[in-house]
């Protein structure tokens, strides 16, 4: 299947800047297409298999490109410009499932106690309290707010259990950002996010980042915390069947805790997204 218009019109992160240092036609795969990245004296360029030069931009610690000549603008994350924040980019991790499934899993708090046991959740507190989900119509993005969850070790800087407040943002079909209570500063949010590079309809590379206030941990300590959490998710993601995202309501019955997932699926449907979606009769 060729990517639908909504999918094709997006910008995609394809790696961190150091990943392309001195690159000479380094192969990269995006939306089932072979691309190459080259570094000419610090200027990165991306070409498709026919040698056509693609648009690029450098933002949020990553190189972004698009197959479209007229892409939708890349969403703003103003927190990247705030002083004192620490940015740690965790590198691309391959996952054998649709990137859409990775976004959906990221939004799902119900898995914390069972997948991230004793870090992001404890089995004694499995319940997800109700939260608000809204569409920002102007920016065309989803926000889930007032999410609360008991976490024994919400981040590398946490010194004990806390009721963590969360906000989730989905500004792009393959990006999602979590805003969570900062354990060491009042009234600010720490950010954790995924920039997903869809490789095939059922395969992706997840570039994750953390953008936090933290005075105690080294960058490498933060990196290990983040990578450990994501590898816990990866195993769950790879065991999901089908590997593409099932959008057909006949498939999986959503529950109340899945309010953000329902909003995400509706939003994908409203934008007529088809690439990466499992068809009900395909699996039968």
């Amino acid at each position: 299947m060729t990517p639908d218009t909504f999918t094709r019109s997006q910008w995609y992160a394809i790696g961190r800047l150091p990943d392309f240092e001195g690159a000479e036609a380094k192969p990269v795969r995006l939306l089932s297409q072979d691309l190459t990245v080259s570094d000419a004296a610090g200027v990165l360029s991306v070409n498709d298999a026919d040698g056509r030069s693609l648009l690029t931009q450098i933002r949020y610690g990553h190189l972004w490109t698009t197959l479209s000549d007229t892409p939708r603008p890349l969403y703003d994350v103003p927190e990247f410009d705030e002083p004192d924040r620490r940015l740690v980019t965790a590198g691309g991790v391959g996952v054998r499932c649709s990137g859409l499934r990775c976004v959906e899993n990221f939004l799902d708090m119900a898995h914390f106690p069972f997948v991230h046991t004793d870090i992001l959740g404890v089995e004694e507190h499995p319940s997800v309290e109700s939260y608000d989900v809204s569409m920002d119509a102007e920016k065309d993005e989803i926000w889930a707010t007032k999410c609360k969850f008991f976490q024994p070790m919400a981040s590398a800087a946490a010194s004990g259990g806390q009721m963590t407040e969360y906000k989730y943002r989905v500004p792009h079909p393959y990006s999602t950002i979590l805003y969570k209570t900062c354990p060491i500063r009042e009234d600010v949010w720490d950010l954790v996010g995924l920039f997903i590079q869809p490789v095939e309809e059922d395969e992706c590379i997840v570039h994750s980042f953390i953008l936090v206030f933290d005075e105690e941990n080294t960058d490498t300590g933060l990196l290990h915390f983040q990578q450990n959490i994501f590898l816990q998710d990866r195993m769950i993601l790879e065991n999901q069947v089908p590997r593409k995202l099932p959008l057909d309501p006949r498939w999986e019955l959503p529950t109340r805790a899945d309010a953000s997932s329902i909003a995400y699926r509706r939003w994908l449907k409203a934008n007529e997204l088809q690439w990466g979606v499992a068809l009900f009769n395909e699996a039968a």
Partner: peptide, 10 residues
């Protein structure tokens, strides 16, 4: 001592 094996190739 945490080593940045990936992505930093420390």
């Amino acid at each position: 001592q945490a080593v940045d094996f990936f992505p930093g190739r420390e």
